[in-house]
Computed example of a mutant assay.
Amino acid sequence: MTSHIGTVARKEFDDAGRSKLLWALIGLLVGIVVIGYAAIWYTADDVTAAEMLSFLGFPLQTIVPIAALIAGYMAVVGERRSGSIKLLLGLPPNRTDVVFGKLLGRMAVVAAAVVLAFLVALVLSAVLFGGVPIVDWLGFAAVTLLFGVAFAGLAVGVSAAVATRGKSMALVVGIYMLLVALWELVTAGPYYLVYGEGPPVEAETWYLLLEQFNPMSAYTTLASETVEGTVPPFTFQYGLESFEASQLTPAERYAGAGDAPFFLQDWFGVVVLLCWLVVPVAIGYYRFQKTDL
């Protein structure tokens, strides 16, 4: 059977690329890069081009997931809402082509936005700071690209799993709020109830593994490994664990003898981001295949 995933992906890239809201977010992302570089260059005399990259970590982890979620949350459910899904499936593309074609198309849009932002950063680094830390730049760009497509996969998976725009929006907004605003409550809160105190710096392995699976933390851990300086995670803090603990990676907080287990190592953040890409898509694909349209 001939696959039409590429055809659907090209159409999705064109359709998503015409979204005014998405282009506004892309403009905001590029604008933040420009403003950040100009502001640091103007106000600080001792910042290097390599150190400048770490300053981009905070705005990137804020804007990239939002742009990716907006790019993907209507990918499949939008076709169902308009009724065009029946027409689309009446043509050569089947349900597999639709889900994975839309996934590739929306991922390509997010990737284009991230690449554009990093190309702007490359030019500004050369012009304002007199050099380009090419190894750091490539590593940071690759991590941010994976971060963005992971959230795009999450959004497309949700879109394929539900039947209405409202449910898709509610789920992606709810998941984003969980990861950013409620993560400490749902992880450190139960820890406090079990042990009668907040998680210490050297916490139990199960808790550190749970912390490792927040894609925001996985991204900042990986980003901090690729640039000079530390990229702090953009998550709300409620005081259930110390500020010192919240700034350390799971590997740094491991209390056991010897090195931390592999699932707490910094590189495992790549696996975490891939899980946030693959698992929602798999769930959404399964539900979409079983849905009576």
Rank of each mutant, 00 (worst) to 15 (best):
T249G: 00
E241M: 15
F243D: 13
P233H: 03
P232I: 13
Q237H: 15
V231K: 00
Q247R: 07
L248H: 01
F236W: 11
Y238R: 07
F234P: 00
A223L: 09
Y238S: 10
Q237R: 15
P232H: 04
E225C: 06
S224A: 08
L248G: 00
S224W: 09
E241S: 12
A245N: 00
S224F: 10
G229P: 10
A223W: 04
P232G: 07
G229A: 09
E228F: 07
A223E: 04
T235H: 02
E225V: 06
L240K: 02
L240V: 11
Q247L: 15
E252F: 08
V227I: 11
A223H: 02
G239I: 12
L248A: 03
S242G: 13
A223T: 06
Q237K: 15
T235E: 09
A251Y: 06
L240G: 05
T230V: 13
S242D: 09
T226L: 14
T230S: 01
P233S: 05
P250G: 13
E252A: 15
S246K: 04
T249I: 08
F236Y: 10
P233R: 02
E244C: 04
E241W: 12
P232E: 07
A245C: 03
S246C: 08
A245L: 02
A251V: 12
Y238H: 13
E225L: 12
P250Y: 12
S246V: 12
T249R: 00
V227A: 03
E252L: 13
S246P: 09
L248D: 01
Q237E: 15
T226A: 15
F234V: 15
T226V: 15
E244P: 04
G229C: 11
A245W: 01
T235S: 02
V227P: 00
P232F: 10
S224I: 09
L240E: 05
P232M: 08
E252N: 07
G229Y: 11
S224L: 08
V231N: 00
F234R: 01
G239Y: 13
T249P: 00
T235K: 05
L248R: 02
E225N: 11
F243C: 00
Y238T: 13
T230F: 02
L240S: 05
S242R: 01
S246M: 14
P232L: 14
Q237W: 10
T226M: 15
G239C: 11
L240Q: 03
F234W: 04
G239T: 12
A223K: 02
F234Q: 03
E225H: 07
A251T: 10
S246Q: 10
V231G: 01
T230G: 00
S242P: 08
E225Q: 14
T230I: 13
F234L: 09
A251M: 12
